[in-house]
Design a protein around this nucleic acid. Structure first.
Length: 414
RNA sequence: GUGGCUGUAGCUCAGUUGGUUAGAGCACUAGAUUGUGGAUCUAGGGGUCGAGGGUUCAAAUCCCUUCAGCCACCCCA
């Protein structure tokens, strides 16, 4: 039994769960398309360097969460833990620098070696958008608005809040980091053990700490907002104004940081309190240095990724699949004719179910179980008259219909 | 990697201070109803009680180990 279980942190998506995922994907794709994002797909594994080089040597994703292995050719391969690095790699591989700006939507599985818990798995799924080649704050607004509209369309906007912050440009960020380190070094003894570790690896993340002692210190810590230089300040203000114009409500969170190294300026998260400890359902920001870091020309970028599992848990029931028509032969002689009729209806665009065995009672039961909209009953009596009995499974009304008129009559069922 | 909680039928759960062949509801199958579904009634199938070891005349129940799931920390979608 144990060996028949899926690998820890992975799950089968049986039809109902899969449909919920599809609903999220389809909604996101459709909304993104309205904003001009075209769907692309990158491989689910890349050379390890693609992620190792871009995500930052100190990030947890790189140091402990990557699924990395050596393939038979001796190449170091990593299952993608996120998709932004892959998209940027694809951008460079395909020589798309001449075609900026580019707007991409993606959808697919990501892999991180973590202990599973609510809203967190080892194989999980994301949709995301990336906008490449736009340095203007208008790009940030457009990207964020896309996310907001998806949440709205999924009917969960009321349970989600947009938190936003600016990390500033490199100069601002470095200046702030120095201030912050100096501040915390002055309170080293009050800092939690984990945060002391963070102080050397990634001091900004102390702002995120859940430790109570840390939080008290953080409350008094210098704010990122106060360290923004003039350019960064103007950029951020323009983004905020744009959000107001776009009708996207937000909350400033000066302690919002990013785990990955490549972010600058705008950082944002759409968060909820309905998913236990997992707050973020969509998270993203601006990454102007990433393309260059990967060896490309300086190219600005901004985007986000959304967790499909998390969104699917929040979203209501997806639209039901179309109800089938049940074709029910009565008697052995009717089998062949029924099969032919079923095929004819399927070619005409109807969803048709025909059971493989059973008498009429069984087949009616099955028709009921699969919530058939109508049953087309074909017996020797009807066949002799080139007709079939058409039964409305909701009202129980039925009537005999010439075989040639079945499509037309079925078309009136909804 | 660390911590807490939980493992009995496909699902949700009973199982009394250890005591014969481990139960219920739902679901499933068949019949009542051999050309008519949903409801009802009847019957049936389905369990190495997560696994391994120990204590005992006797273990689903007590002890140890292990595995898995869930939740939380770290971190993140």
């Amino acid at each position: 039994m144990a060996s028949l279980n899926p690998v820890r942190g992975t799950h089968d998506l049986l039809p109902e769960a899969r449909r919920r995922h599809r609903h999220v994907e389809d909604t996101a794709r459709a909304v993104a398309a309205r904003y001009g994002f075209a769907e692309i797909a990158t491989p689910i594994f890349e050379f390890t360097e693609v992620f190792a080089r871009t995500l930052g040597d100190t990030s947890d994703v790189v140091t402990k969460e990557m699924y990395t292995f050596e393939d038979k050719g001796g190449e170091r391969i990593t299952l993608r833990p996120e998709n932004t690095a892959s998209v940027v790699r694809a951008f460079l591989s395909n020589g798309l620098q001449q075609q900026l700006p580019l707007k991409y939507f993606y959808n697919g599985p990501m892999f991180r070696y973590e202990r599973p818990q609510k809203g967190r798995q080892r194989q999980f799924h994301q949709v995301g958008v990336e906008l490449l080649g736009v340095a203007q704050p208008q790009g940030d607004v457009e990207v964020i608005a896309t996310g907001a509209q998806i949440l709205d369309q999924l009917g969960i906007a009321g349970d989600v809040e947009l938190e936003i912050n600016s990390l500033g440009d490199t100069a601002s960020r470095d200046a702030y980091r120095e201030k912050l380190v100096a501040y915390f070094e002055g309170h080293l003894s009050a800092l939690s053990e984990e945060s002391r570790e963070r102080l050397t690896r990634n001091p900004l993340r102390i702002l995120d700490s859940k430790d109570e002692g840390d939080r008290a210190l953080v409350a008094e810590a210098p704010l990122m907002t106060d360290s923004l230089n003039a350019d960064s300040r103007v950029f951020f203000d323009t983004v905020l104004e744009g959000l107001e114009t776009a009708g996207v409500p937000y909350r400033l969170n000066p302690r919002l940081v990013r785990g990955l190294d490549y972010y600058c300026h705008t950082a944002f998260e759409f968060t909820t309190t309905t998913l236990g400890a997992q707050g973020a359902v969509i998270a993203g920001g601006r990454y102007d240095g990433l393309v260059q870091q990967m060896g490309g020309p300086p190219t600005p970028g901004v985007g986000w990724a959304a967790g499909i599992e998390r969104l699917a848990m929040m979203a209501g029931d997806p639209p039901p699949p179309p109800r089938p028509i049940a074709v029910i032969p009565v008697g052995a002689e009717a089998q062949t004719a029924a099969l032919g009729l079923a095929q004819r209806l399927r070619r005409a665009g109807f969803a048709v179910d025909m059971a493989y065995s059973g008498n009429m009672g069984k087949r009616m039961k099955r028709a009921n179980r699969i919530e058939a909209r109508a049953a087309v009953i074909l017996g020797t009596d009807e066949l002799a008259r080139s007709a079939a009995t058409l039964r409305d499974m909701d009202t129980g009304e039925q009537s005999e219909v010439p075989l040639t008129a079945i499509e037309d009559r079925l078309a009136s069922f909804t």
